[in-house]
């Protein structure tokens, strides 16, 4: 397995270079270094000299991908792409275009993101699996039918509706928890209760329906019939056999998400005032801060690749037949 992990890690390097190249190309297709400078310096009283100075300070005065004026490896290394990307591979994110440390921001912002994303993930998983099991257990009954209808209805509603509706009902009308905000101390619970509840409820529709299909597929298999024929209770059949065997497809979708929980939620963090990495990314896109966008896309890619690797490893844990070679 160790060799497999090493091999997959090495595969990740060209993928990350590709992702970087793509991000770089997409960003600079719509933004020139001058645009970035103007965005940072504002539009009032900005002279061309100030633009040039800003670009030189931050290394945006070089060619984008190929430096024809340089010699040897300098043609590749003395470019914006190389200088801005190479250090990412040692997780040195450098400074944002406003001059502030990106590493510091990531280190401080990932905890609020996790504080929201982790409970939503865990509680959501529990709730979705429970509801899906219930629907599967009562398959072909009115409970199953209306459960599926409700799930489809819930997944058709925009996430924004749950957020605004939740804020209106729970915080404004019933005055139970703050509408938005965040605290890193113990009373942080009161700020997280609503976004977690909204995140869980908003995900029930798609999650429960998805898991239900896995459970139903498993329930139609021979080993379930054999289990029943052995005289096992339905309880035992569902939890000991169906749930366990349905874990492989569930893990495919779930484990890959775990590392990316650090990246936060773009919309929830904005609406609930949670200072996480999701809102950091949104801010960076709005202010055209390439340094942050590049760092966050890189981080997202690394975490996603790590998630896929974890998924593969988790297969071996839930299914002894699988070996990573």
């Amino acid at each position: 397995m160790f060799a497999y992990i090493i091999r997959r890690t090495l595969y990740a390097i060209p993928i990350l270079i590709g992702v970087n190249l793509l991000t770089f190309a997409l960003f600079f297709v719509v933004n020139t270094p001058e645009d970035i400078a103007r965005m940072q310096l504002g539009v009032k009283r900005v002279t061309p000299e100030a633009i040039e100075k800003w670009k030189a300070e931050r290394g945006y005065d070089k060619p984008l991908l190929m430096n024809a004026g340089a010699e040897g490896v300098g043609t590749v290394t003395e470019t914006i792409f190389f200088e801005k990307s190479a250090r990412l591979f040692v997780f040195d994110f450098g400074n944002a275009d406003d001059g502030r440390s990106i590493g510091h921001e990531i280190a401080t912002r990932m905890w609020p993101s996790l504080a929201l994303a982790l409970p939503v993930f865990l509680v959501g998983l529990l709730v979705n699996v429970t509801i899906a099991l219930l629907m599967a257990f009562f398959r072909a009954t009115y409970l199953d039918f209306w459960g599926v209808v409700l799930c489809v209805a819930m997944m058709s509603i925009s996430g924004l509706f749950y957020i605004i509706g939740g804020q209106y009902l729970i915080s404004k009308l019933w005055n139970l928890v703050p509408i938005s905000g965040f605290s890193a101390s113990v009373d942080g619970f009161k700020f997280l209760a609503l976004p977690v509840a909204v995140g869980v409820i908003g995900g029930v529709g798609s999650g429960a329906r998805w898991y239900r299909t896995f459970f139903l597929e498993e329930m139609g298999k021979d080993y379930v019939r054999t289990a029943r024929a052995k005289g096992l209770t339905e309880n035992m059949v569902m939890f000991r056999h169906v749930l366990k065997n349905a874990m492989i497809p569930i893990l495919t979708g779930v484990v890959v998400v775990i590392p990316t929980l650090f990246m936060g939620s773009l919309i929830s963090e904005s609406f609930f005032g949670i200072p996480g990495l999701g809102s950091y990314t949104i801010d960076a896109i709005q202010s055209q801060d390439f340094a942050i966008v590049r760092a966050m896309v890189f981080m997202g890619s690394v975490l996603y690749i790590a998630g896929l690797l974890l998924t593969d490893i988790s297969y071996t844990l839930v299914d002894p037949r699988i070996r990573l070679e």
Binding site: I164, Q167, Y168, S171, K172, N175, P178, I179, S180, G181, S270, F271, F272, G273, P275, S279
Partner: peptide
């Protein structure tokens, strides 16, 4: 100074006296 990126929570907090 609390950061409010969205108008709805900001307005409701004002109405609540916060």
């Amino acid at each position: 100074f609390s950061r409010e990126k969205e108008g709805i929570p900001y307005w409701n907090k004002f109405l609540q006296g916060y």
